[in-house]
């Protein structure tokens, strides 16, 4: 390899190859930036030149300014954006954390025990098609306008995907995997921590990814109905009351950005450390 690569003819083509790879890398970055900024630029122009109603569709620069103001001491209340983002994120983190526990336990009971299957399978099949938001009025009556309502919405939205994927993951573990573990003399605890948990992990992460997507959408909607003072959903709903259209669009942008970060950056990292590193295919 090395003696071929160091020959002059090869070095030139190698350098060309490297610059091409470098360019590819840049393009991979640039492409999404262009595809998002071009429509925003057109929007800016259209709004400023009066092609579209600038009250209903304020130019993006105005939206960003409004967000900037609301993120600072002049906001109402001061630093409002941070409170809204923090409130929504806290609900997501707590709700998803609870769903992770509930979903994993229920999923394992369904996949590994006959009684768990008998009890939970029919219940889950019946409840799964119900949109999470349909529960919100019930939760409002039970908990009132409270964090518990929004957190429970997140919990419900995430649990089903996690249960479904944990069951799928355990079903995919071949009987022979357990045979190998047992012929190594594995105890039940060892089989659980060294075989079942890592075996299910890729599926759990997939369930988490899809579940968080659902949870994020459900949370924003639930905050419109059931948040008293903070949260991105509440912020949008509140802004609508006062015709602060720039804040509405600002909220939408923040939801998009945070959703992207949650689904791609946080979970992307988790997947890179597990599924991608192991080269495991998760079938769904």
């Amino acid at each position: 390899m090395t003696d071929i690569a160091s020959s002059p003819a090869c070095t030139a083509s190698r350098r060309a190859f490297l610059t091409r790879r470098n360019r590819e890398k840049w393009m991979a970055w640039l492409r999404p930036v262009i595809s998002i900024s071009v429509p925003l630029l057109i929007w800016e122009l259209a709004s400023r030149l009066g092609w579209i109603n600038s009250f209903l569709f304020p130019p993006p620069s105005q939206i960003l300014t409004a967000l900037w103001v609301q993120a600072g001491p002049q906001g109402r209340p001061p630093y409002a954006i941070f409170y809204h983002v923090f409130a929504s994120m806290m609900r997501i983190v707590i709700g998803v954390g609870l769903a992770l526990v509930v979903g994993t336990v229920v999923g394992m009971l369904i996949a590994l025990t006959a009684w768990g299957r008998a009890i939970f399978r029919p219940i889950i099949s019946a409840i799964m098609p119900v949109p999470t938001l349909a529960w919100t009025p019930v939760l409002l009556l039970v908990f009132g306008i409270d964090n518990r309502t929004t957190i429970t919405v997140v919990l419900i939205a995430t649990s089903f995907e996690i249960i479904y994927n944990v069951v799928a993951g355990l079903d995919m573990l071949s009987k022979r995997v357990f045979w190998v573990a047992r012929s190594m003399g594995a105890s039940h605890t060892q089989t659980f921590f060294k075989v079942i948990v890592p075996g299910v992990l890729p599926y759990l992460i997939t369930g988490l990814r899809i579940g968080i997507g659902f949870a994020w959408r459900a949370l924003i909607a639930a905050e419109m109905l059931a948040a008293s003072s903070y949260g991105l959903g509440f912020m949008i709903f509140d802004a609508a009351e006062y015709f602060n259209i720039d804040i509405i669009f600002g909220g939408i942008m923040l939801i998009a950005i945070l959703g992207l970060l949650l689904e791609n950056v946080v979970l992307g990292r988790l997947e890179a450390a597990t599924i991608k590193r192991w080269g495991v295919q998760v079938e769904r």
């Binding site: 071949s174 995997v177 190998v180 890592p198 075996g199 992990l201 597990t274 192991w278 495991v280």
Partner: peptide
């Protein structure tokens, strides 16, 4: 079918 542990 080998039955290796892919996470190891």
């Amino acid at each position: 079918e080998f039955i290796l542990f892919p996470w190891r």
